[in-house]
Design a protein around this nucleic acid. Sequence first.
DNA 1: CGCGACGCTGCTCATATGAGCAGAAATGCG
DNA 2: CGCATTTCTGCTCATATGAGCAGCGTCGCG
Lengths: 311, 311
Amino acid sequence: MDEELLMVRVAELSYDESKTQDEIGALLGISRWKVGRLLLQARERGIVRIEIVHPRARRLSLERALVERFDLRDAVVVPAPDEKDLVLERVARAAADMLTALRPAPRTLAVSWGRTLTAVADALPEGWTHRVTVVQANGGVSLNRRAGGAASLAGTIAHRGGGQAILLPSPAILERVETAQAIVSDRTVAAVLAQAAAADTLLFTAGPADAGSAHVENGYLTADDIVELARRGAVGDVLGRYIDADGNVVDPQLDARTVGVDLAQLRAAPRSIFVTAGAAKHDIARTVVSNGLCSIVVTDESTARELLEET
Amino acid sequence: MDEELLMVRVAELSYDESKTQDEIGALLGISRWKVGRLLLQARERGIVRIEIVHPRARRLSLERALVERFDLRDAVVVPAPDEKDLVLERVARAAADMLTALRPAPRTLAVSWGRTLTAVADALPEGWTHRVTVVQANGGVSLNRRAGGAASLAGTIAHRGGGQAILLPSPAILERVETAQAIVSDRTVAAVLAQAAAADTLLFTAGPADAGSAHVENGYLTADDIVELARRGAVGDVLGRYIDADGNVVDPQLDARTVGVDLAQLRAAPRSIFVTAGAAKHDIARTVVSNGLCSIVVTDESTARELLEET
DNA sequence: CGCGACGCTGCTCATATGAGCAGAAATGCG
DNA sequence: CGCATTTCTGCTCATATGAGCAGCGTCGCG
């Protein structure tokens, strides 16, 4: 008799009909132990497929693999939904869940900005924590007056966490190094930066080095600048700082014009949570994760698989 | 806390990570009984989906429902595959499996013909039974010389079952009633018909009343005849006899010109196995099954659901 | 043909699980 | 607010299940 057919029959009786292995054995004329073994094989061979269908489902095995491989504190991986544009939403919700459950709860949370983090902020429920202080970690998009900008992002997170937001009153990138130095030495700005650097938790995203970058959109850089950065090896930016595949700053000159927590401070943070979604960010995600720039990563299944692929 | 989210976490730990309910309880800070209940709910709500992915999988719940509803001896329902043209193949294989497992094994098997039964014959393995006598139950398509005709069908089934085929040397439908009567009273033909009527098992399909009918294709009827039959309420043919939704012969005149086992004999058969696949045959399938013309049905999921739908 | 190695079978036993139930908590109703 | 009713919780206990193991059959190889 065909062993595989037997597996199918056994699986049907077990899962569809919820019969006991004893009953199945009697029915098919085989011993109950054989039934158990067939059931096991059926699962191994993928004849029986068990999946968890839910927007909040996760991929624990990938999470474990990421933690292991990149020596992380934690990882959250959500399954890729059927519809592409839901990825960001799911990752954001997962990040929100993670933040809510984070222990010890963050007292001071430094945040960067971007579409991804805006989505995270929106996904956070009212009362997700108590008395958190939210500090902006890098220069803002205050030029941009529409709702959902950097200020409102920090505000939302703080408000829903029963705390207050501290904004960084500075552009992301200055035109001249001297201006940047002047701003950074301003007492108010310096205080905010110091507080961000001292935050117990840092929440950030990264952007790819392409023309769609928020820096271009907000006028801090031109499309040509990006092309030039990419030519010099930049794969994307973290907290406004463009880095190459090895995690090094690509253009020190540009870096000196950028206002915000720097990479060394990011590395030194007690907890740094990196949120990323979508194929466009695979390269920069790899850079961040494999160079120890984050201790916790929140992402989607396809990014996770890409990260785990042997080089 | 969100109960549903908890179900998802529990389901992940149980199914993806194969942890025990005890461990899960400890991990999530809930009692092991709660874990069990959440798991149950997760399955009820469809958060956990268990499916059996295999060409030979079946739908036992639908089978049970069919047996119950139509007072059948048995039913076999195969899942609808992703690709439409595989339906016939799967149903045929299921029918072959059923025949092979049939107890008591058929000694005399009367068969009709058609694409469906040809597929069943092809799906039967060598040695599917021992010493079976296969008799043609209705007039053949002997006009048609290509392989896979009625004669070869019966031959294949008989050969692979270690027995011999007895062919019915007559057209399916005669032009005149008198000719039909003459043929039927011929000693040879009468003997075959008697043997078919006395068979312990009858295996047959049905065809819809549309222009693609095998009767038109083989020149027994014209497309116009079919239109006229349909106008008079015919939904299709069984053993060459056109019947309406109530299972009655539509045109007694035509019926008298048809050579083969008649409906009363079909109803009286100890075991009559009806094989049908595809949406085109939903109507005739309903007629056959709901009028007691078969005691066993083999079909696909979509047909089964259609049959079970409340009128 | 004989021998060793391997895989398969059906067992024992420890453990995991589900049914059923009594008390606790929540809810609804006057 | 008080009481009845329902829902939920964590228990006991019977049952189902999986791990581990000895015996048996089968196969391959010399």
